[in-house]
Every structure is written in C-alpha cells, then in structure tokens.
Amino acid sequence: MQLKLTVAAAIAAASGIAMAQDVVVKIGHVAPMSGPQAHYGKDNDNGVRMAIEDLNAQGVTIGGKKVKFEIQTEDDAADPKQGTAAAQKLCDSKVAGVVGHLNSGTTIPASKVYNDCGIPHVTGAATNPALTKPGYKTTYRVIANDNALGAALALHAADKLKLKKVAVIDDRTAYGQGVAEIFAKTAKAKGMQVVDTQFTNDKATDFMAILTAIKAKKPDAIFYGGMDAQGGPMLRQIEQLGMGDVKFFGGDGICTTEIAKLSGGAKTLGNVICAEGGASLDKMPGGKAWKEKYDKKYPNQFQIYSPYTYDATFVLVDAMKRANSTDPKKYVPMLAKTAFKGVTAQIAFEPNGELKNAASTLYTYKDGKKEVVK
C-alpha cells in the first residue's frame, strides 16, 4: 500500500512539474460580438480560435517552455468608445498581443491605446488607410486597405463597364466614408460624373428618401460605403423604386454571404460588384483546404475575414518564436521583420505596418451566391 502511494505521489509530482512548465499566453481578440454586425465578429472570432487550436496542437515552445495559447475575446459592438474600453481591458489583462478590431472606426482609436501600453495588434479587417498614418510600431494590417479597394471598384466601373454617372452614399463611419471618398476621387479622375452624394448611418434601415433623391439624377450606378446590415435593405428598396438596372458597388463591408439573406431575395443583388482585400479563397496559398476545415468546424458561419484573423494570430506567434519571448517589449520589433507564409498570402510588412504587395479581388452575386468577377 505504501509503495502504491509513493508511486502515485511521484507521478503527481512529476505531472505537477510538467504542468508548471506550461506557460499560458493570452491572445486578445476584439470585434462586434453583439448587434447587427455580430456575424462578422463571430466569423473573426472563429478564425482566431482555429489558429489557437492549431498552434496548441503544434506544441509551441518559446524561451525553452511549452506555451499554451488562450483567447480573450472582447465585444466592441462596432462602437468607438466601447472599442477603446475593450482595448484598455486587454492592456490591463496583460495579453501578449491582439487580433482586431473589425471596424476602422473602432480600430483607429484603439490603436493609440495599444501603442501606449506597448501591446501589438494585427487587424485582418479594418481597412481605412488612416490606421497606419500615426506610424505606431504596434499596428499592423494583413489585408489591403481602402485605397486599393475603392480604386479597384472605380477603375472597373469606368474601364470595364464604361459607366458615366454614379451616386455615392456612405454611413459616416471611418470605414464607409473613407472607402466612398476614394471611390469618388478615382471615379472623377477617370472621367465619371458623381451626380449625387448622400449620407446615412450604420444603424439605419430606411433609405427611401435618399434613394428617391438619387433616382431623380438617373445614375448608372450607386456606390455604398458601409456594411451589409444596411446594404441588404438598400438593395430591396432600390428594387422597390424601379431602379433594377442600376449597378451597386461597395467595399468589403457588403461583400458577405449574409447580404444575400439581408437583401431578401431582391433581384438587385445580381447588380452588386464588391471588393475584398486579398486573393479569392481558391487563389490563396492555403485557402481551399483551410475553408473546408473551417466549414466542418463552423458550418454556415463564414463571412469574409476569418482567414485573415487566422493569419494575424499566427503572425503574432511567429514574431514571439523568432524573438524567443512572449513579452511584447521583446517581440514587437520582430513583427516588422515578418516573412510568414500564411493561408491568405506571403505576409511581410511595409515600414508603416501595411501589408506588402496587397492583392484585391472583385466579386458579384449569381443566383444568390458570391463569385469572382471574371
């Protein structure tokens, strides 16, 4: 009996030593987990969780110790004030790094909070170019910015479709206003006429007044800078007003699977041309296999950005491994030297934290399904 107890104690002590050697490292994630944009937030969160599961399965060792990664998700509800509060909470929790946020309007103010507390954040979704203008060494983006998206859409409208007149609507958020301004500027430079400019907000669902005003100007297309929660109802109302032949352009905010549901079967969904930063899933280095794995784990939840949040998580950990430390003070300088083969792309950064050689892809909808513009 005594011998059994001694052996059991020895095993327990040995396992205790092994457990003591495992270091828990928290990765923060912030996105709207509630409200009308929660489907984006859930998708982003899924991407981070998948990355953490895959990293833990690899048995990552940093600084001679086995590391166990955990996620700490905070909900910013797409609200800038809540975004900075979430960022501060992650700073206070001393997470090793952050993936996020989703919206430019939350990411831009949060970036200062992260810079001030010395924690790096990598966004796979926020696209306003202003994010990297302060030059924070803690701010990185693994997706193309709105300069690429807005310009690509305007060039397609002018050069491929030969459109002459366009109306522009934006939701007054940092993202919506930014991408709309770039589209309008590029469209004008290509000789297109911006016949009307209208504004809404990211909570609205009734656009009949502004669409009626736009209809009177007889545009060939409408550009909407905003998200799918507004884009879907807008497509229904465009159809109701008899503008079934008007093209509908938008950035990655409307380029979701969800917009097909939100448009409620409107035929105008077929007029949508939207842009995403990055290659299509089929052309991403690991996109196809990754998507199959994602769909098995999270059926019917994929939107847009989860491959990028997956890669963003790996980029943070890759820098930790190269620095041989999970301490942000030690591994942040290694982020600037990233050369990581991700699911979405070969990831390397410009000095300001922008993705080098960022691709963009145009999409449309056929029979309610999203497909690459040929």
Rank of each mutant, 00 (worst) to 15 (best):
G47T: 09
A87L: 05
L55K: 06
V195Q: 10
D75W: 03
K366Q: 13
K297E: 05
K267H: 04
I182R: 06
A148M: 07
Y308D: 10
G191N: 14
T123G: 11
T268W: 00
N300D: 11
R141C: 12
A10M: 06
D318I: 07
K185P: 05
T200Y: 01
K218V: 10
F314S: 10
V23W: 01
A12S: 12
T173S: 14
A204C: 02
I238K: 09
T338H: 05
G251D: 03
T268G: 07
E276P: 01
G105V: 02
V168H: 07
D171R: 14
E70N: 14
G135I: 15
A31H: 06
I62C: 10
L211K: 06
A13L: 14
K133H: 11
H29D: 08
F302K: 03
M208A: 13
G225S: 08
A12P: 10
T173Y: 06
P134I: 14
I259F: 08
I238P: 02
I347N: 06
A10W: 01
G232D: 05
V48S: 09
V30F: 04
I169V: 14
K65S: 14
Q37N: 13
W290T: 11
S15V: 15
L355I: 15
D75A: 08
E181N: 15
A209K: 05
K366D: 12
Y136I: 14
V30A: 08
I304G: 07
A57E: 01
H101K: 03
D202E: 04
L235N: 10
A151F: 02
D206C: 04
A158W: 00
A279C: 09
L3C: 02
I62S: 03
K26F: 01
A189Q: 15
S15T: 15
Y224A: 06
V272I: 14
N324L: 03
F302R: 01
Q240N: 11
K374W: 09
Y305S: 12
A209F: 00
K337I: 03
T212S: 13
L102D: 02
K133C: 09
Q21W: 08
L149R: 08
F69M: 10
F248Y: 13
A216H: 03
V67F: 00
S280V: 13
L211E: 03
P233W: 04
K133F: 06
K81L: 13
I17S: 00
G287F: 04
R322C: 10
V142R: 02
D146N: 09
I52Y: 00
G35F: 04
E258I: 02
Y140H: 13
A110S: 13
L316I: 15
A96V: 12
D76L: 07
N44G: 11
A18V: 15
Y114E: 02
G242N: 14
D79H: 11
A18G: 02
I27Q: 08
F223H: 04
Q58V: 15
G278P: 09
A157L: 12
Y331Q: 12
F349E: 10
S34R: 09
D159Y: 10
A154C: 13
